[in-house]
């Protein structure tokens, strides 16, 4: 299944992804980086298009978190 995944090391925690997410699946963890709730994410890619640092990407992830 395709889900948004974030490179937390390079993430700038600006929060644009969280603002654009229509499912409210993204939150900013303690002001450090964005975290994707894979049970809510539908892999639409709106966050990827908005991310100014290019750290959040929709990719194939292993099912099992549901």
């Amino acid at each position: 299944m395709r889900r948004a995944s974030n490179d937390t090391k390079r993430c700038v925690a600006c929060g644009v992804c969280a603002l654009t997410c229509p499912r409210e699946a993204i939150s900013i963890f303690k002001g450090c980086y964005a975290v994707v709730d894979e049970s809510k994410c539908v892999g639409c890619g709106l966050c990827e298009k908005a991310c100014p640092a290019g750290t959040i990407r929709v990719m194939e992830v292993q099912d099992g978190s549901r």
Partner: peptide, 25 residues
Amino acid sequence: LYKERTWCTFCPMGTMTQGICRIKS
């Protein structure tokens, strides 16, 4: 030139606050 909020990636306030948050976490 780039993404809408490209400024945020190198905004000095953003860098500073993220640095503080990282230390705190």
